[in-house]
């Protein structure tokens, strides 16, 4: 009896474990091992080589694209944070119950619209014959079409737009748990708006800020749709380099090396940021 239940329990474990292992093994682990191996192989002979990585580090173009991608990702992450934090603060601590629900719905709604449509709406607004150009002519500010697409700033606007929710929601969640009497206590003890912000509200929201920033940074770094549509041929985003190697040049090995570089870098970067800010992500999640 005892033996058989133990046997059955073991059987059940394996029955549950099998689909999970198949899924995560075949669709995640093995493909990434394959990617890793490919990155060290010569394109023709398949022999071990570091040439794919050397190609990245020796080419100023690839290096620049990478640095550009990273810089833009950091800038847009910070920009998103600066826009989202006041919004999250106002929604949680200033607005009344009804207004809060309304504002939340309005912020969540665009999130359910696919990123492709989001980028498309900005194209409609920003292209040469677009809405913004029309509006400026209608108001008499200019008399000819202006192309707002395919600028760096267009990319930033698009990225901030798709990222806004991923930053706002974690911050709202963390601010929601801040007892209002803590803010009152800070005022009561002589604090003003800024000192209360600095010493009470921001430290309390730090885990939410961290989660939001990491998510947004990773999303930006790995973005493809928004940057290629709004940046056009000049987007020079690192994911586009990966795509080009795989699909346009049929150079799997070079593309794999780029993929490994992107992955390694993003994980390292997040880890370093967590170390510097002394945040524990498990605590934050």
């Amino acid at each position: 009896m005892h033996l058989s239940t133990r046997f059955r329990r073991g059987q059940r474990l394996w029955l549950l474990l099998l689909p999970t292992l198949l899924w995560i093994g075949l669709l995640f682990v093995l493909p990434h091992i394959k990617l890793f191996l490919l990155s060290f192989m010569d394109r023709r002979s398949g022999a071990f080589t570091l040439a794919n990585y050397a190609a990245f580090f020796n080419s100023s173009l690839y290096r620049n694209v990478f640095v550009r991608t990273t810089t833009f990702s950091i800038v847009t992450t910070l920009l998103t944070l600066f826009i989202s934090f006041p919004a999250a603060f106002i929604i949680t601590k200033v607005l009344g119950r009804k207004m809060k629900a309304l504002a939340l719905i309005a912020i969540v709604l665009p999130y359910w619209v696919s990123e492709l449509i989001q980028a498309f709406t900005w194209m409609i607004l920003f292209r040469e014959t677009g809405v913004l150009s029309y509006l400026l002519q209608y108001l008499g500010i200019t008399h000819h079409n202006i192309e707002f697409l395919y600028h760096n700033s267009t990319i930033v606007v698009g990225l901030v737009y798709t990222s806004l929710l991923f930053m706002t929601i974690p911050i709202i969640n963390s601010l929601d748990t801040l007892d209002d009497s803590l803010i009152e206590a800070a005022y009561d003890l002589g604090g003003d708006f800024w000192s209360t912000m600095r010493e009470i509200i921001i430290p309390h929201a730090a885990p939410g800020i961290m989660v939001g920033s990491i998510m947004v940074f990773m999303l930006n770094l790995g973005n493809y749709v928004t940057v290629t549509l709004l940046g056009g041929k000049n987007s020079l985003w690192f994911t586009e380099s990966i795509y080009n190697q795989f699909i346009v040049r049929f150079n799997q090995n070079q593309g794999a090396a780029f993929g490994v570089i992107l992955l390694t870098f993003s994980v390292l970067f997040v880890w370093i940021v967590l170390k510097i800010t002394k945040q524990d992500l498990t605590e934050a999640m």
Binding site: S181, E184, H204
Partner: peptide, 10 residues
């Protein structure tokens, strides 16, 4: 304060 409102971040 009723629930004291001590600052847990300090």
């Amino acid at each position: 304060f009723q629930r004291l409102a001590l600052f847990p971040m300090m």
